[in-house]
């Protein structure tokens, strides 16, 4: 009898393990395209946790299901079950195993976080200063030329505001509402916000960083797959939060250089500003359907403008 139970238990554990491994492999398909080096790491971590999680979920719910199906009291049976109050070895095991598992998950996550290395320094930048660098381009170039010799790369300035994204390439003095990045090169950003919290989020890259007014946050990542992806505002930023999105274009080094040259040659014109359009439309409506909103910032003047109609993956 006891031997039979052990065989059944081992058999079940193997079956659960196989199912869990399969589900863990499926987990890769639940994610957006894997477009950055960080995404590869995070998807591996997610698949690992899905595998473990599936095993635990099957173990617990399978046991509960068996009990509810086969261990019901007969209709007129008012007797009690066996008065089992506990089992010390069993309790030690089910304390030790989760402990070991979370240490495992934690250590693995720690290593991955170290490898990602996405977050640089967070510096205080008084709001007025941020405004100055945002508007006076030459100053930005001057200050960055020092670091350029050291790192050969000036961070792209990501300027968030209610509700449009603006990307400033200091070396070429380009302003764009579409973010262009060369594939397989470390991309560096300096994140600033002019009003409230925003979230710099590109699902295909699996990375996200809140942008905090009054601070300059250094951030970096490595795109590894050419394509067009969504960039969204992940921190609730007010009325048009959900509409505050644009595209990221990852392209080959050549195409990227061509784009830089093309954009630099364009005069600055007003970009699309969907939030402002929607706001104006609502204001012209004689019957107000909502409450007062913060007025969206005017359209940024850009060398290269994205369009709401642009495609993305």
């Amino acid at each position: 009898m006891k031997r039979r139970n052990i065989v059944i238990l081992v058999g079940l554990a193997i079956a659960y393990a196989l199912i869990s491994l399969w589900v863990g492999q499926q987990a890769y398909n639940w994610m957006p395209p894997q477009a950055s080096a960080e995404a590869v790491l995070i998807d591996n971590l997610f698949s690992f946790m899905v595998t473990l999680g599936t095993f635990i979920f099957l173990g617990v719910t399978g046991t509960l299901l068996f009990s509810t199906l086969f261990q019901r009291a007969a209709k007129y049976d008012t007797s009690d079950g066996p008065p089992v109050e506990g089992n010390i070895p069993l309790e030690v095991v089910w304390t030790a195993i989760p402990f070991a598992l979370v240490i495992w998950i934690g250590t693995y996550s720690f290593q991955i976080y170290e490898q990602m290395g996405i977050l640089g320094s967070i510096e205080d930048a008084p709001m007025s200063m941020a405004m100055v660098t945002a508007e006076a381009a030459p100053l930005g170039i001057e200050s960055s030329s020092v670091s350029q010799s050291a790192e050969l790369q000036t961070p792209i300035e990501v300027r968030a505001r209610q509700w449009v994204w603006e990307f400033y390439y200091p070396d070429e003095d380009i302003v764009s509402t579409e973010l262009h990045l060369p594939v397989n090169q470390r991309a560096k950003f300096a994140l600033t916000s002019e009003d409230v919290l925003h979230g710099f989020y590109i699902p295909a890259f699996r990375i996200k960083q809140d942008i905090i007014p009054g601070r300059k946050i250094d951030f970096e990542l490595t795109p590894i797959r050419e394509g067009r992806y969504r960039l969204r505002d992940s921190e609730h930023s007010g009325t048009f939060s959900g509409a505050n999105q644009t595209n990221v274009v990852v392209e080959s080094a050549d195409e990227y250089q061509q784009w830089l040259a093309f954009a630099a040659a364009q005069p600055r014109t007003a970009a699309e500003n969907p939030a402002f359009d929607e706001f104006t439309q609502a204001e012209q409506n004689p019957i107000s359907m909502g409450w007062e909103s913060v007025k969206p910032a005017p359209a940024p003047m850009v060398n290269y403008a994205s369009s709401k109609e642009d495609s993305y993956e």
């Binding site: 790491l41 995070i42 971590l45 997610f46 946790m49 899905v50 999680g53 635990i56 979920f57 979370v102 998950i105 934690g106 996550s109 991955i112 976080y113 990602m116 996405i118 979230g199 989020y201 699902p203 699996r206 990375i207 996200k208 960083q209 992940s234 921190e235 609730h236």
Partner: peptide, 17 residues
């Protein structure tokens, strides 16, 4: 189980918010 996933900071950076 999803809570443990969210506790793992690198994964949370993707799905946070």
């Amino acid at each position: 189980i999803t809570g443990i996933m969210l506790g793992a900071a690198p994964f949370d950076i993707h799905v946070n918010n």
